[in-house]
Amino acid sequence: MTAVEPTNATKVRVGDLSVFYGEKQALFGVDLDVPANQVTALIGPSGCGKSTFLRCVNRMNDVIDGCRVTGSILLDGVDVNDRTLDVVQLRARVGMVFQKPNPFPKSVWENVAYGPRIHGIASSHAELDRIVISSLDRAGLLKEVQDRLHEPGTSLSGGQQQRLCIARAIAVSPEVILMDEPCSALDPIATATIEGLIDELREKFTIVIVTHNMQQAARVSQRTAFFHLGEIVEEGETGKIFTNPTDQRTQDYITGRFG
């Protein structure tokens, strides 16, 4: 658990968010403020809507057939579902790291260069190379892959692949990074490395992380929201949620009585 810091400005403000997959409703009028430059952890039992919530923020639910979203998600005061906001630009500002490491079948270098290329961020090859190297460095991967930048990204170990995916996400300089259980496919050592990395990334980025691991939520986050059956039961400073929850269901979940 990190020391409680003064609440920063709100980066993402979610109001009355409901999500439907066809007939089935997955989220029921959720409200949540995500403060800038902090790590917000979303916890809760499987199927409670954490990932659905996360995927609304960068509109990844767009690609799912029959998915319908109501309510507002304000990124710096602008609704992400606004027609004037282009989804391509939105996703450049809100990056995502997935549960299973999913490097492209390209070289390590090409993996990181992918985002800057499609957004035309670098004007020359040298600049692109500088972005790739600094992203790998910030993801704590540069030392390990320095000599194998042109080997396939899939040849790295699981933990390295996940850090490659983080490097790939930060290469487009997003403002928010969404992480959907980024450590669930990794061993404890790789997990510890990534947790340390998340703590460092907080300086530059706003991070929202979904996790099933209570200890992880307590270790890396400043704020925690507990989801249950498509609603947020309780949210607040991580220290308070874990030591003195007000709701009985939160108490039961974090002490392992259900979920």
């Binding site: 990056g95 997935f98 390209k106 996400a169």
Partner: peptide, 23 residues
């Protein structure tokens, strides 16, 4: 997962197909 990774970086559908799926 590869398609989602590409969409998540802001790639369009045709970019994703040309640069990730077809390779």
């Amino acid at each position: 997962a590869l398609r989602e990774g590409s969409y998540g970086l802001g790639a369009t559908k045709s970019e994703t197909i040309r640069r990730v799926v077809l390779p």
